[in-house]
Design a binder for these strands. Structure first.
Length: 509
RNA sequence: GCCGCGUUGGUCAAGGGGUUAAGACGCCUCCCUUUCACGGAGGAAUCACGGGUUCGAUUCCCGUACGUGGUACCA
């Protein structure tokens, strides 16, 4: 690792919802920058104009903000190396492609999409199902390597569309040291002549990523393993462009796989298995299709990040629950693993549950409120909400769980599990509840202690076992066999509501 | 097909030439709780296979298998 200052980037393509794998890539870059006092830049890779999706860029920014991943430079916070959107940098790329042509490391190619398809079709064999545009085929194609110079000039002058392709050398071995995987080497004879500049004048990812990383002085590149096969091309580009001494260190992150079967985790898997894949809700502007996000499912940002950090990284200690600040302090590239990890939604919920338990009740209440409102629960008192949150948080894995777990605090249960009461029901019990609730006004200050004392006294007088009376009481108040301490519930919902619910239940028994 | 990368319980994983091969999620049992959870205590469950190297391989090397990524004018 050289001594220049650390600059990393997260370079998503704004084509839709932000996948959790993307967030993890952003997180690892961010953590690395924090660890080495570096800068984190967000660069939008929108070189494919056919895949432009309105709103996707802002959505990415919003997701990072929700997560708590802070960028130092981005399209919205310009810095010394802007612009930070590749479409805005379009004029910057061509000169480098042309430099390569002059050097003999790239060439013009005039083949139409149809011609390319025909070549691939014609050359396809069982042994070689995907023929490449490479050293073995380029001389039979229409390019400045295969055609006489005069003809090339004529086409150029006539304004015939063309692309610029990299001229992959033969017989070389490209080797580089990956921060995560160690030495990686490839034989150039097997690599193809990738398009560098498209016919619309836009660079492809390959050209843009190298030019931008150079111009933006990026020192370390952490990206998904799907980029490993094209890393040799990038290394070659750094060399041919004369920037080898400034080449960043590469670190290819393991893939996040689907929980069942095999393959990269996709949005489809989430839809199919019922869990979110995107960081936040995403609505496709074309189809109007909405995809749920972790945020809206009730995840705490730090829990989300904590869970993501453990998908491919391990601190080497027993500690599993980390705040963002703790991750920043503990993160180390050496502990990133090489193998892909299957995403486990159950474990994700466990991380969330652990963070919920550690979150201050008032803070939690603020986060929970939107979920209760969405469930139509009338919450009119913040203090009561904080109290309720403290009582039910134990059993919540997501913020959304609070709605179900605390609904009875805010309104009478719609369904009462009468069957669980009827089994041992007696007229004596009915009389007990009727009499006790009629005397609620004698309880005095309506709090846990007083209510309990009143209950104990009444139970003793009735001669019925306490256990026989506690469960039905709970069911009458909350609707079922769940929830926190009954006396706490009674205190919060108030004497009047308790009496009403008991009477309503009695009427049905 | 070819090329790259990978392979410790169902999942995430620690470890690393000699260990009873950590821990967590999930699952099961029990305890706690006059409910449900939380929590606690236990339990079942793992080094892909074949060759080497070695006194000794889960660990090192080589193969094989399997998985996965790439093989686009997508990123």
């Amino acid at each position: 690792m050289n001594s220049r200052s650390v600059r990393v980037r997260f370079a998503p393509s704004p084509t839709g919802g932000l996948h959790l794998g993307g967030v993890r890539t952003a997180l690892f870059n961010y953590l690395f920058a924090k660890r080495y006092n570096g800068k984190m830049v967000l660069r939008v890779e929108d070189t494919d104009q056919t895949r432009f999706v309105p709103g996707a860029e802002q959505y990415i920014v919003d997701c990072l903000e929700w997560c708590g991943i802070v960028t130092d430079e981005s399209p919205l916070q310009s810095g010394p190396y802007g612009p930070y959107r590749q479409s805005d940098r379009k004029p910057m790329y061509r000169q480098y492609a042309e430099q390569l042509i002059v050097q003999g490391d790239a060439y013009y190619a005039f083949d139409t999409p149809e011609e390319l398809e025909k070549m691939r079709e014609d050359l396809k064999t069982p042994e070689n199902p995907s023929p490449q545009y490479d050293i073995t085929t380029r001389m039979r194609m229409r390019n400045s390597l295969s055609m006489p110079p005069g003809e090339v000039d004529a086409l150029l002058e006539a304004g015939i569309p063309y692309v610029i392709r990299f001229r992959m050398p033969e017989g070389e071995t490209i080797q580089f040291d990956d921060l995560i995987r160690g030495s990686i080497s490839n034989d150039t004879g097997l690599l193809d002549d990738k398009v560098l500049l498209k016919s619309d004048g836009m660079p492809t990812y390959h050209l843009a990523v190298v030019v931008d990383d150079y111009l933006m002085k990026i020192s370390h590149i952490f990206r998904g393993e799907e980029w490993l096969p094209s890393a040799p091309l990038h290394v070659l580009l750094w060399k041919k462009l004369g920037w080898e001494q400034d080449m960043p260190h590469f670190g290819h992150l393991p893939l996040i796989l689907k929980p069942d079967g095999n393959g990269k985790l996709s949005k489809r898997d989430g839809d199919r298995l019922g869990f979110p894949v995107f960081a936040m809700d995403w609505t496709d502007p074309q189809t109007g299709e909405k995809t749920i996000g972790f945020k809206e499912r009730g995840f705490l940002p730090e829990a989300f990040l904590n869970m993501l950090a453990f998908l491919g990284w391990h601190p080497g200690t027993e500690q599993e629950i980390f705040s963002l600040a703790e991750l920043e302090a503990a993160f180390s590239v050496e502990r990133i693993s090489r193998s892909g990890a299957k995403f486990d939604y159950e474990k994700a919920k466990w991380f969330n549950q652990q963070h919920i338990q550690r979150t201050d009740n008032a803070v939690l209440a603020a986060g929970v409120l939107p979920f209760l409102e969405a469930a139509g629960l009338p919450v009119d008192n913040k203090d009561v909400l904080v109290r309720v949150v403290s009582l039910v948080k134990d059993r919540c894995h997501t913020l959304a769980d609070f709605a179900e777990q605390s609904a009875f605090f805010f309104r009478a249960p719609e369904q009462i599990d009468l069957d669980s009461i009827r089994g041992k029901w007696t007229p004596e019990k009915a009389a007990f509840y009727r009499e006790w609730s009629d005397n609620f006004n004698a309880v005095g200050s309506w709090d846990h202690e007083s209510i309990n004392a009143s209950f104990e006294t009444a139970v003793a007088a009735s001669g019925i076992k306490k256990g026989e009376l506690m469960l039905p009481l709970r069911i009458m108040l909350v609707g079922g066999k769940f929830g926190p301490n009954v006396m706490d519930i009674m205190e919060i919902i108030g004497a009047a509501a308790c009496k009403e619910r008991i009477e309503a239940a009695l009427a049905q028994l």
